[in-house]
Nucleic acid binder design. Structure first.
Lengths: 246, 246
DNA sequence: CGTCCTCTTGACGGCTTTCAATAAAAGTGG
DNA sequence: CCACTTTTATTGAAAGCCGTCAAGAGGACG
């Protein structure tokens, strides 16, 4: 990772080979860091949202409330992810943003977007690429929610989290710390907490995972991916039209 | 609509007041028009996709296949919608694109994106705004699929189509021509064709709609919207950071 | 130590799917 | 334009998945 001063730059660089000026632009923008503790509500649905949020460290989710009071968790955000790009199009937040773990975020004024697009068109294009990646991931989630049975949906969620959450390097099976309640998992995949519990038990019985408190060992990551129809979309990005520096 | 030579420009102009040079740029890009008949597969999943597709007239949908053979219809595209922006980020199509009705589309080379971002940064920003709008709409669909019962999901779909499909101007209730099979409707909202049939009947019995063959009369559009938790996101766009011309 | 939240498990019920059969509509070839 | 075939729509019955309700256990926190 190189411990850059901009984690968005660290996220983009492997894909696009940022120029020094592009990198320094991003570093200049990611000024206002803020630490948030687990459970903190960073942004509430329908509140004014003047800034874009970038995750430096930790883990967030965004959710929305339906008229009947049900909640749907839209997606999770990990280190380097841009969490509030919707503010590019809407003045108010379209979803509630909550910290899953203790995290560090930084914010980026909307006006900075204009600077990016005018001063560094190629960075603007990258923002579009990011948006498209997010859209395809959302699409995968929609397909899973609409067409897969409960157990597969839970498997898909675990596969995604296992793939994106930085692991403590270790030899044995990957162990992820899951500070999500089963109700939150249910809100993410469209199930009740009770049924999430049953599906987790079922996945454990079949040897896909093992559980102890809020730690989950991923015993068969490939199996989870197959079950949940999971694809790593980030590795499929191919934006050659962006590669020539303008 | 003004019958401009670029329907993307017609789509954008009410929101952003395009400059003459921006408009002429878009008109220059939308060269290769093509007529497609109902049912035509414009792009197939995982095929190379070198272009962005814009809908000039008619109506498309995009879908994806899961490993178990199930299909999920992702979304519908209407006049002015940009159907293949994902090609900005991926070299291959992430979904299959099919014409619902006889339609006219035009395509835009990927290399044109670079011209847009470098020559007209503000247009680049608009593309990002479009992407965000699409994402929020997708989010609404995910919430409906994950959290609403069958009847409400069908209502949401009808509400969306009624809102976006250009109506034949008439005095009575809006009548939409629905050349979708009930299986396709089911693939869009995550239900079987059989159950879609029952839900349509139920909606008709309760006076929300009336049906005759493939025509659906929308008798209570507000009611459908309430049932389906439908929101017109396009009207919520607020991208003032884009308004100053660069 | 008590309270609250979360997890766990069982029993039951309802919504949705599956299976099946018929009717209606649309497409095809003569 | 008419038989013929294929697809789509419709409806009923039965089964299954998931939600609801309920009760108890285990932890976290004050």
């Amino acid at each position: 990772m190189g411990e850059g001063r901009s984690c968005l730059a660290d996220w983009l660089n492997p894909l696009f080979k940022l120029s020094p000026s592009e990198r320094s632009m991003l570093e200049g923008l990611e000024q206002s860091r803020r630490a948030v503790t687990r459970g903190t509500v960073i942004r509430r649905e329908n509140e004014p949202m003047p800034e874009v949020v970038i995750v430096r460290r930790g883990w967030l989710y965004s959710s929305t409330l339906l008229a009947d009071g049900n909640r749907q968790i839209i997606r999770f955000f990990f280190s380097g992810d841009v969490a509030g790009l919707a503010s590019a199009a809407f003045g108010t937040s379209t979803s509630t943003l909550v910290a899953v773990s203790d995290s560090e975020i930084c914010t980026l004024e909307r006006s900075a977007l204009r600077k990016i697009f005018t001063g560094h068109p190629r960075l603007g294009g990258m923002l579009l690429v990011i948006a498209q990646l997010e859209q395809v991931v959302l699409t995968d989630r929609l397909a899973a929610t609409g067409r897969l049975p409960a157990r597969a949906r839970v498997a898909a969620l675990l596969a995604e989290i296992a793939a994106k959450l930085p692991q403590e390097a270790a030899s044995g099976p990957a162990i992820i710390h899951l500070p999500l309640t089963q109700e939150e998992i249910g809100d993410a995949v469209g199930l009740t907490a009770v049924h999430v519990n049953r599906m987790l038990r079922s996945l454990a019985q079949d040897g896909y995972i093992a559980r102890e408190n809020s730690r989950v060992s991923i015993l068969d990551e490939d199996g989870l991916r197959r079950l949940g129809n999971y694809a790593d979309r980030r590795s499929e990005i191919e934006a050659d039209w962006l590669m020539e520096r303008a």
